[in-house]
Design a protein around this nucleic acid. Sequence first.
DNA 1: ATGTGC
Length: 503
Amino acid sequence: MTTFDANGITLERVREHVWEIPQEGDMRVPARVLASEALLEEIQDDKTLEQITNTTHLPGITNYAICMPDGHQGYGFPVGGVGALDAENGCISPGAVGYDINCGVRMMRTNLTYDDVQGHEEELVDSLFANIPSGLGGGGIVEGGVDTIDEILARGVDWALENGHAVEDDLRHCEDEGMREGAAPEKVSQKAKDRGKNQIGSLGSGNHFLEVQRVTDVFDSGVGEAYGLEEDQIVVLIHCGSRGLGHQTCNDYLRKIEQQHKGLLDRLPDRELAAAPAGSQLAEDYYGAMNAAINFAWVNRQLIMHRTRQVFERVFDRSWESMEMDLLYDVAHNIAKKETHTVSAEPRSADGASGVEPRIDGEERELYVHRKGATRAFPAGHPEVPDAYRDVGQPVIIPGSMGAGSYVLRGGENSMDLTFGSTAHGAGRLMSRTQAKNEFWGGDVQQDLEDQQAIYVKAQSGATIAEEAPGVYKDVDEVVRVSDELGIGDKVARTFPVCNIKG
DNA sequence: ATGTGC
């Protein structure tokens, strides 16, 4: 058997790109890492493998804990982790969703070509930067009171539609039509709402950005046509999340769960995995609050997209409708969701007594599918794929670094069997932000991108550019190659940056 | 990611 030894953790090769950390000790299931050897080498020295192993201790974990090709260490649970926890007998874990609830990306098409935009890059990037709030702190497209926040939390993009920030078609091209069921605004703290109320429609900082891109390759012309993508076309990619509101919500519930479910916490190998047992009041409350924060993030991306249409109208002196600036799709990267999946038989529990009814092989179970730094990737035919894409599969949008470009994939036919319908979410970081600032200087990075690749970047802070320098990320081509070869997310198109604004 | 702290 081929093995990979990573600093004391041995992975067994199941088949190409599939590695397993066998079940032992208090692990309830094995862990799986979906990666090439080159990608494994990049996570052998940090805590990624330890964290995905720790995840297998969570009650109700089903089949495997899974680390995606772009996985790297995170808070308790790896970024790039998928954990499906039984919604009846298992638990829900805020650390396995992430601090930035519904951080995600959306792509908007246009009918412009690169020729139309060349020569306007600086005007475009300046106008986007001036009109779309970014950076840390407050200031959003909409200034809301408490009533506004509560409506946004409850209704998501439906609120944006009613208030002139969306068209019907936008809702049809977003998961859950931009409105997550089960949102409970009353379970979001006043403090979280206060942080969110002046951040409605704002990019934030860190790896969040808005990028104008050109399509350089269409690998699958049939799916490309269904997605409305062709070579040389201009598209816009928006990457942001739920800002201070989601961060505060995660923090609030981590603290509550640590206090009220200490018994479970004491049995876990890392307190950052703190989880509320399924059926408990806190599990219900967190799920309701998280769903509300998900709606906030969708509104955030919607307002930014709609404002981008207005910026293009001014720069190109045409209506956005005539430029066919339609939403391709919006994907969430940090969420938990109740989904029904076909599962394997209950594996033996470490102490010989799981205390729950054993599962039957092939049984359908309702699971809290936690995807943290991972994307839903449902295949063709799945009922939750929007009508427009049902025959080809769900669009998956994978941003690379600002010097590398991004990919559009479609949910692959193996995703339901291998990954609870999931794939990677990005290139994945190679080094910490602190390390990045020691290696790069923002002004140099910005100048090199412009001189060498004709990519125009404008940011609130030079430090942010250094933290997000292309050299800070893994090779997005390698991540996508693994996803494609596993058949969990298939390559459809590739894009390259034209201009980029960030915090 | 984050009014850059658990």
